[in-house]
Amino acid sequence: MGTTAELLLAAILLFIVLFPVLWLLLISFRSVAEVYRFPLTLLPERVDLSAYREVWLSKGFSNDWLQYFVNTTLVSSIVSAVVMLWGTLMGYSLSRLRGRLLQPVQLLLIIVQLFNGPALVIPMYLLLNSIGLYNSLFGYGLLLVLFFLPFSTLLSLSFAKSIPFELDEAAKLDGCSQFQSFRKVFLPLARIGMTTTGLMTFLLVWSEYPFAVALLEGRNRTVSTALVDLVSGLNVYWNQMAAASVIISIPVLIVLLFTQRYIVQGLTAGSGK
């Protein structure tokens, strides 16, 4: 594939994936009047930063943006780290599991996720409430770990299958214990799959809304509920929502750019054959 063709493909792909986000970026620099002008122009006529000011200062709306941001970052990082490590451990173990048990376990993992729908919001709320974890970031995080762990396990399982079993058997012949062979042989090879799973979990948690809106209130709220508040019901504040989205996207973008290195490196160094 020539570089020109590749560039073209990448440009089309990036446009499709990013255009709503780019659109938000362009919207965030407009005054309200300009957002609703007809016909709408692509670029703002006049760069206007009032949306950024308003969304940060408005008293009646979410004046605790910074708090929400910290909450979301904490929950997303901890949950995704736990889910990634635990899921990799489980996925690895399952991939080394023989015949009879694997199938029911896989089915179990699938069934858990079937319930992660709107039907279960109320029962989950009642469960957490009865053990005193309503409106607690810890309880919220716990629930998310439970619901994202099957996903991460299944994905890790599929990645673990791609890594040859002979490698950790060879390590065991060299005198490694099972744990050592998992940590020293398997984990380095599983890095790509792990990072992918971890990043996905991080963003899935970052933008989680149904449980956040049911389980959190006050200063424990997360960014997603605060964002939804700006575009719900009678009042839709596109430019403020856009400004808020742009602000919260910047740190996430930095994380993504930083971590993509780990997905990219591939097995060039450690193919081990």
Partner: peptide
């Protein structure tokens, strides 16, 4: 990047 924003 599209996942930075909640589904709603």
């Amino acid at each position: 990047v599209p996942w930075v924003l909640p589904g709603v």
